[in-house]
Computed example of a mutant assay.
Amino acid sequence: MSITVTTWSLEQTSPADLRPATAPPGEVTVVRAGVPSPEFSRYLYTAVGQDIRWTDRLALTYAQWEEALTRPGTETWVAYDHGTPAGYVEMQAQEEGAVEIVYFGLVPAFRGRRIGGHLLSYGVARAWDLAERWPNLPPTKRVWLHTCSKDGEHAMDNYLRRGFQLFDTKVEEEPEVATPGPWPGA
């Protein structure tokens, strides 16, 4: 069985494009995961992506996860609500000053609490100043990402409200696959 998936690619071409969301009420903090951890990243990936069919990294070995996370200019920023991981943004430096927001999302229990706009704003700001933390990288000239029709219902609106502009749309048929949650049987 297959499903039709629309993928939209969006970008910002200047730090001035970012329109930050206001911080949510309560004890929400965003912290960089300073030590690359395949275990923690896989937890975040499955916890966020279980209900929106993230599957591309599920078959990776530990070594492949480690390789992806330790590339120069790759960072993971995690939102915590009262000390509990609520979501994350993973970014990766690319050629010619581009930074891709590779993964972004919230654990289902934390959606609808105004954390997503704040986390995206924070992550995009960190993408724009990435070269300050990685001196061998060129300054960021472009921040981009993609989202698709499998993502959360508010994803596209959040990206547009943060100042991203659409630059490409693709429609493809994909096999429908079951995605495990953060633990077997979820």
Rank of each mutant, 00 (worst) to 15 (best):
A98Y: 09
K170D: 07
W77Q: 04
D151N: 10
W134E: 14
L10C: 07
G152V: 00
F104L: 12
E75Y: 06
G152I: 00
L58C: 09
D81W: 06
Q94I: 00
V143M: 07
N158R: 14
T84L: 08
Q50L: 13
E96H: 15
G87K: 04
G97E: 06
A21S: 12
Q64R: 09
S37I: 01
R42P: 05
W128S: 05
S14F: 04
T140E: 11
G73H: 06
F104K: 02
H146A: 11
W65H: 08
P138G: 10
A155C: 14
K141C: 10
R71D: 08
P138D: 10
A93G: 03
E132N: 11
P138T: 13
P135H: 08
A63F: 07
T22W: 02
L106V: 03
D168R: 15
A68N: 09
A178Q: 12
E95N: 09
T179F: 03
L69N: 05
E27Y: 00
L166D: 06
I52F: 08
T22M: 10
S2Q: 13
Y122C: 10
S41R: 08
M156P: 00
A47M: 05
D157Y: 09
G87R: 03
L44T: 01
L137D: 05
V177P: 03
L130A: 02
T140Y: 04
R71P: 01
V171N: 07
E174W: 12
H82E: 15
R42M: 11
I52K: 04
A93T: 08
T22H: 08
A93H: 10
S149K: 14
V35L: 09
A155S: 15
T22N: 07
G181Y: 08
Q92P: 01
V89S: 03
E90T: 15
W54L: 05
R113T: 04
P25Y: 06
Q64Y: 00
L10K: 10
V78R: 01
T7P: 05
T61I: 11
V35K: 07
V89E: 03
Y103D: 15
V78Q: 00
F40M: 06
T13Y: 01
